[in-house]
Amino acid sequence: MTINTDSALAMARLARLDLGAEPADLTKLAEDFDRIVAYMDILAEAETAGIEPMYSPMENTAGPRPDEVLEPEGSAGKAELILEQAPERVGRFFSVPRIF
């Protein structure tokens, strides 16, 4: 797979990144990206027919939690602490530029 500036921009858009307006920067970024992806293409050589994908090494995990309130110590006022972190608030709401 070859990566060019268009495909880099498309990925950036999906990931909500702004790659900036400088064409030189963008070209360099696409080249780096292309080199990395070209390296990843080595995987095509691996013989994986019939191999079950391994998504995680986790084993012997405990089951789900009960449907009960289980709060770590010192959680009082947590909602307030969370709201205090907001870059912009209206009352108890988080706030962003209007969507529609």
């Binding site: 009960p66 959680s75 947590k78 909602a79 108890r92």
Partner: peptide, 26 residues
Amino acid sequence: VEPNTHICEICTGQPGALPRLNGRAV
């Protein structure tokens, strides 16, 4: 309840939080 009252680090996506599945839902 008031807006943003029933919230914690998990359901507001704070850094470091992890989900724990509710068995009753299953």
